[in-house]
Design a protein around this nucleic acid. Structure first.
Lengths: 205, 205
DNA sequence: AATTTGACTTTTTAAGTCGAAAAGTCAATT
DNA sequence: AATTGACTTTTCGACTTAAAAAGTCAAATT
C-alpha cells in the first residue's frame, strides 16, 4: 500500500540515512548502502520514501525541527532580548556543528540544483528571521532596543550571520572545517552579535 | 624585446580589454576580439602581455588601484572615524557597481579556479582590512570608539560586508543584478554600517 | 493486508574521444 | 622596438559509451 504504517522503521531509515549523508554527503551515498546498513533491500526504501531527494529532505527537516524546538523553548523563558539573541546565535552554531546536513544547504549553489532544497533552505531562513524579528520586537517593546524596523533588522541580522559563515568557509580552500575553523567562526559570530546588540540598544540616559 | 616601452599602448589595450571583460566576462572574451577592437593583431597582444590571465589581472588591478587611490584621499581628510567608515562603504559600493570585474573576484569559487585570481582577491581583502583597521585605531585613539581589538574588528567588519553582498546575490537566482538589487544592497550595507558604528562607539557619559 | 525483494528498466554520471576554436609561439618584416 | 602571418598547442563543448545508481513492479513472504 502507498501509506506505510510502520513509523518506527521510518525513524530507523532516517537515522541510517543521516549517518551516511553526514559522512559521505548526498552524492556519494547510495540508496543500496543505506538499505544494507539496516538489513533491508533498496526496494524496501522506496516503499517508505518516494525518492532519494525526499529522504534527504526528511533528514534535514528533522534536524531543523530539532533546532527550532530547542530555540522555541528559549524564547519562552524570561530573558532579555539581548540574551535571547546571544542564545540564538550560540544554539545555531552548536546545531550546525552537530547536524552537518542542515549546514550544507547554506553553501552557495548547493540549494540551487534541486528546487526541493531551495524551498527547504528558504523555509529555514524564514523561520530564523521570524524568531529574530520576534526577539527584536520584544526588545523594542521592553525599551531595551531603539525603535528600529524589526523586519529589516531581522533580515539584516540573519543575512550577516549567514554571510559571515560563508565568508570564513570561503577563506579556507578546503570545504571541510577543522576544530580551529569552528572556534574562529564562533569567535566571529559572538563578537558580531555583541556589536549588533549594542548597535541597536538604547543608549543610556 | 621582452620589456615593451610603449606604456601608452598598454593603457589602450587594458581599456579595450576592460570594456570586453565588463560586458562579456572573461570566458566569452577572446584575445582576437580585444586585438581587433584597437586595430591590432592578436600576436601583438602577446608582445605586451604574457597571457590572457595576466591581462585580466592587470585590468582588475587598475580598477583596484583606482579605488584605493580614491579611498586614501578620504583617510587623509579630517573626518570622524565614523564618517570615514561610512564613506568607505559608500565608495566601495560605487566602485563595485562601476568596475564589474573587480566585483567578480568576490563571487564564490571564481577565484578558486586560478591561483592568480585568488592572490589578487586576497590582496584586495588585505588592503581593505588595513584601511578599516587604521580607521578603527584612529577612532579608538580619538576616544570615539571603545577600546576594542582593531585587527579583529577590521577582519570582522570586512567579512560581514562581503558576506552580506554574497548573501543578497545568492538570493537572486540570476547572477546579473538589477537596479533594485543595487538599491537593496546599498540599503542593507548602510544600515549595517550604522549599527556597527554604534556598536563599537563609546557610550555617552 | 502490510511489507519485502529479486529482477527489471531508466536515468545519471564519469571517462574517453573528437573537432573546432581559442590560446599561445615565433621567424620574418616593417 | 613593434608588428604580424603562419604556425603549434591547449582548451572546451559536443558527442559516445559503459558502468553504476536511481527508480519500478510483479511476485513472494510475513
Amino acid at each position: 500500500m502507498s501509506v506505510p504504517q510502520d513509523s518506527e522503521k521510518i525513524k530507523v531509515i532516517i537515522e541510517a540515512a543521516r549517518k551516511r549523508f553526514d559522512h559521505y554527503g548526498l552524492a556519494k551515498t547510495t540508496m543500496t548502502e543505506i538499505a544494507s546498513d539496516i538489513g533491508l533491500s533498496k526496494a524496501s526504501l522506496y516503499y517508505y520514501f518516494p525518492d532519494k531527494e525526499n529522504l534527504f529532505i526528511e533528514v534535514i527537516r528533522q534536524e531543523m525541527e530539532s533546532f527550532f524546538e530547542a530555540m522555541n523553548k528559549v524564547t519562552c523563558q524570561s530573558l532579555t532580548a539581548a540574551e535571547k539573541l546571544r542564545y540564538f546565535v550560540t544554539l545555531r552554531f552548536d546545531y550546525f556543528k552537530l547536524f552537518l546536513n542542515m549546514g550544507k544547504l547554506e553553501l552557495p549553489h548547493f540549494d540551487s540544483v534541486k528546487p526541493g532544497f531551495k524551498k527547504l533552505n528558504d523555509e529555514f531562513i524564514a523561520r530564523e528571521k521570524k524568531i529574530i524579528c520576534n526577539i527584536i520586537q520584544a526588545g523594542i517593546k521592553g525599551k531595551e532596543f531603539e525603535k528600529i524596523d524589526a523586519a529589516l533588522h531581522s533580515d539584516l541580522f540573519v543575512s550577516l550571520l549567514r554571510g559571515l559563515r560563508v565568508m570564513i568557509i570561503k577563506e579556507r580552500d578546503s570545504f571541510m572545517l577543522t576544530a580551529e575553523d569552528y572556534d574562529l567562526i564562533k569567535n566571529y559570530q559572538t563578537n558580531f552579535t555583541s556589536v549588533y546588540i549594542k548597535g541597536i540598544s538604547k543608549t543610556k540616559k
